[in-house]
Lab assay of single mutants.
Amino acid sequence: ELSWTAEAEKMLGKVPFFVRKKVRKNTDNYAREIGEPVVTADVFRKAKEHLG
C-alpha cells in the first residue's frame, strides 16, 4: 500500500464505507501504473476518472 496525503485520505473518507477498501486498492494500483510514489488528491481524481 502506498502513502496517501491527508487531502487524498479526506477524499477517500467521502467514499461509501462498503467500497472504500476496493477504491483504496484500485487507486494504489493506478498510482503505481502511472509511476506515482504517493497518492495525492490529484492522483485520486485521475484514478476516479480513469477507473470510472
Score class of each variant (00 low, 15 high):
1 E>T: 12
1 E>L: 11
1 E>R: 13
1 E>Y: 12
1 E>V: 12
1 E>C: 11
1 E>D: 11
2 L>H: 04
2 L>K: 05
2 L>P: 08
2 L>Q: 05
2 L>V: 10
2 L>N: 04
2 L>A: 04
2 L>T: 06
3 S>H: 13
3 S>P: 15
3 S>T: 14
3 S>V: 15
3 S>C: 11
3 S>I: 14
3 S>W: 11
3 S>Q: 13
3 S>D: 09
4 W>F: 00
4 W>V: 00
4 W>G: 01
4 W>K: 01
5 T>A: 04
5 T>V: 03
5 T>E: 05
5 T>Y: 02
5 T>N: 05
5 T>G: 03
5 T>S: 08
5 T>D: 07
5 T>M: 03
6 A>N: 09
6 A>I: 12
6 A>E: 13
6 A>G: 07
6 A>M: 11
6 A>D: 11
6 A>Y: 10
6 A>L: 12
7 E>Y: 04
7 E>P: 05
7 E>H: 05
7 E>L: 06
8 A>K: 00
8 A>S: 04
8 A>T: 02
8 A>W: 01
8 A>M: 00
8 A>Y: 00
8 A>L: 00
8 A>G: 02
8 A>R: 00
8 A>E: 00
9 E>Y: 09
9 E>Q: 09
9 E>D: 05
10 K>H: 10
10 K>V: 11
10 K>P: 00
10 K>W: 12
10 K>I: 12
10 K>N: 09
10 K>F: 12
11 M>H: 04
11 M>I: 06
11 M>F: 05
11 M>C: 06
12 L>G: 01
12 L>K: 01
12 L>T: 00
12 L>V: 03
13 G>T: 10
13 G>E: 15
13 G>I: 10
13 G>P: 05
13 G>C: 13
14 K>V: 06
14 K>M: 12
14 K>Y: 08
14 K>P: 03
14 K>F: 08
14 K>W: 07
15 V>I: 11
15 V>P: 02
15 V>T: 06
15 V>E: 10
15 V>M: 12
15 V>S: 04
16 P>W: 08
16 P>F: 05
16 P>E: 04
16 P>G: 04
16 P>D: 05
16 P>K: 05
16 P>A: 06
16 P>M: 05
17 F>I: 11
17 F>P: 09
17 F>Y: 11
17 F>C: 08
17 F>D: 07
18 F>S: 11
18 F>H: 13
18 F>G: 11
18 F>A: 13
18 F>P: 10
18 F>D: 09
18 F>K: 12
19 V>P: 03
19 V>W: 15
19 V>K: 13
19 V>M: 15
19 V>T: 08
19 V>I: 14
19 V>D: 12
20 R>H: 03
20 R>D: 01
20 R>V: 04
20 R>E: 02
20 R>Y: 04
20 R>T: 03
21 K>T: 12
21 K>A: 15
21 K>I: 12
21 K>W: 14
21 K>N: 14
21 K>F: 10
21 K>R: 13
21 K>L: 14
21 K>V: 11
22 K>R: 14
22 K>V: 14
22 K>I: 14
22 K>A: 13
22 K>H: 14
23 V>Q: 04
23 V>Y: 07
23 V>C: 07
23 V>T: 07
23 V>N: 03
24 R>E: 03
24 R>M: 05
24 R>V: 03
24 R>H: 04
24 R>S: 03
24 R>C: 03
24 R>T: 02
25 K>P: 02
25 K>N: 11
25 K>V: 12
25 K>M: 14
25 K>L: 14
25 K>I: 14
26 N>C: 13
26 N>M: 15
26 N>W: 15
26 N>D: 15
27 T>R: 02
27 T>S: 04
27 T>Q: 01
27 T>A: 08
28 D>S: 07
28 D>V: 08
28 D>K: 02
28 D>F: 03
28 D>M: 09
28 D>L: 05
28 D>R: 03
29 N>V: 09
29 N>E: 12
29 N>M: 13
29 N>A: 14
29 N>Y: 09
30 Y>L: 04
30 Y>W: 07
30 Y>D: 00
30 Y>A: 02
30 Y>R: 02
30 Y>V: 03
31 A>K: 01
31 A>N: 00
31 A>C: 07
31 A>P: 00
31 A>I: 02
31 A>G: 03
32 R>K: 09
32 R>G: 04
32 R>W: 06
32 R>C: 05
32 R>F: 06
32 R>N: 06
32 R>H: 06
32 R>A: 06
32 R>D: 03
32 R>E: 04
33 E>A: 14
33 E>D: 10
33 E>R: 11
33 E>H: 11
33 E>T: 10
34 I>H: 15
34 I>A: 08
34 I>N: 10
34 I>R: 09
34 I>L: 10
35 G>T: 03
35 G>Y: 04
35 G>V: 03
35 G>A: 05
35 G>K: 06
35 G>W: 03
35 G>N: 08
35 G>M: 06
36 E>T: 08
36 E>K: 05
36 E>N: 05
36 E>V: 11
36 E>L: 07
36 E>P: 01
37 P>Q: 12
37 P>F: 12
37 P>S: 14
37 P>E: 11
38 V>K: 07
38 V>L: 09
38 V>G: 03
38 V>D: 03
38 V>M: 10
38 V>Y: 07
39 V>E: 00
39 V>I: 09
39 V>M: 02
39 V>Q: 00
40 T>E: 01
40 T>D: 05
40 T>G: 03
40 T>P: 01
40 T>W: 01
40 T>M: 01
40 T>K: 02
40 T>Q: 02
41 A>H: 04
41 A>T: 06
41 A>E: 07
41 A>C: 06
41 A>K: 07
41 A>F: 05
41 A>S: 07
41 A>I: 08
42 D>A: 09
42 D>M: 07
42 D>L: 07
42 D>H: 07
42 D>C: 07
42 D>R: 07
42 D>I: 07
42 D>S: 08
42 D>Y: 07
42 D>G: 06
42 D>K: 07
43 V>S: 02
43 V>W: 02
43 V>K: 02
43 V>E: 01
43 V>A: 03
43 V>R: 01
44 F>R: 01
44 F>Y: 10
44 F>H: 02
44 F>S: 01
45 R>S: 07
45 R>N: 09
45 R>V: 10
46 K>D: 07
46 K>Y: 05
46 K>L: 08
46 K>C: 07
46 K>M: 10
46 K>E: 08
46 K>T: 06
46 K>P: 01
47 A>T: 04
47 A>Q: 03
47 A>V: 05
47 A>L: 05
48 K>R: 15
48 K>E: 09
48 K>W: 15
48 K>G: 09
48 K>C: 12
48 K>Y: 14
48 K>P: 04
48 K>Q: 15
49 E>M: 12
49 E>Q: 12
49 E>H: 12
49 E>A: 13
49 E>S: 10
49 E>T: 11
49 E>Y: 12
49 E>W: 10
49 E>F: 11
50 H>L: 11
50 H>C: 07
50 H>I: 10
50 H>D: 06
50 H>F: 12
50 H>W: 13
51 L>Y: 15
51 L>A: 10
51 L>G: 10
51 L>F: 15
51 L>I: 10
52 G>H: 13
52 G>A: 14
52 G>Y: 10
52 G>V: 12
52 G>S: 13
52 G>F: 10
52 G>R: 14
52 G>N: 14
